[in-house]
Amino acid sequence: MSGSVQPWRAIFRREFRSYFATPLAAVFLVVFLFLAGIFTFSLGGLYERGQADLRPFFDFAPWLLLFLAPAVSMRLWAEERRLGTIEVLTTLPLPVWQAVLGKFLAAWAFSVMAIVLTVPLWMTVSWLGDPDQGMIVAGYVATALMSGLFLALGGVVSALTKNQVIAFVVTVVACFLLMVSGFPVVLDFLRGWALPSVVDAVASLSTLTHFASLTRGVLDLRDVAYFIVGIAVLVLATTFLIDWKKSA
């Protein structure tokens, strides 16, 4: 048919626009940019460090995303369930994965947009000095990938509830655990009883470790793969959950 689009693209467009239909987008963007600025300039001591780079911004970005990504993902499916529109959506002739993919990509595109809006920070440090541009690009890629991973995890949680507050809180906790799984707080707890191979496996899942190695300016494929595979697995899990709920 002329001008027809793949269903997932229609889902993507609707979802992306819906962020701007409510004050959510404005609130989110303002808070994100405001905090990014504070973290970079004040708390991160951009001027005091005497070094023109975005290190302070990328150091704080994971903690910013820890709260802001769940705020974006909490509505993905919970809202559809609350409104009842999930009944329209899942009885339309499209595979569930297309609906899940379209929604996830919309959420990701929105958060990448927020991240891109911090480019004035980049321009500022470039004007002040001569930062390592490659490192900044790597930092931005890492931040975008991390937001994608958190949103995909949030999608899984959102598929399980119609309560957005629950979706938000559970997602923050889940993202936090995933983030710090390479740190003593999690590993010490496991070491007492789990097999060393399990401890290593959990440690290798740590988002913060992969994020840190990317922001050091090394675009290691293994780190990129960690995020991409993680996102793919979580999107598939969401698809499975939406499907499974039909027989529940």
Binding site: M1, S2, S4, V5, P7, A10, L94
Partner: peptide, 12 residues
């Protein structure tokens, strides 16, 4: 939106 998901587009 419903029409696009159903595969309609353009003039149709």
């Amino acid at each position: 939106f419903i029409g696009q998901v159903r595969g309609f587009g353009g003039k149709a």
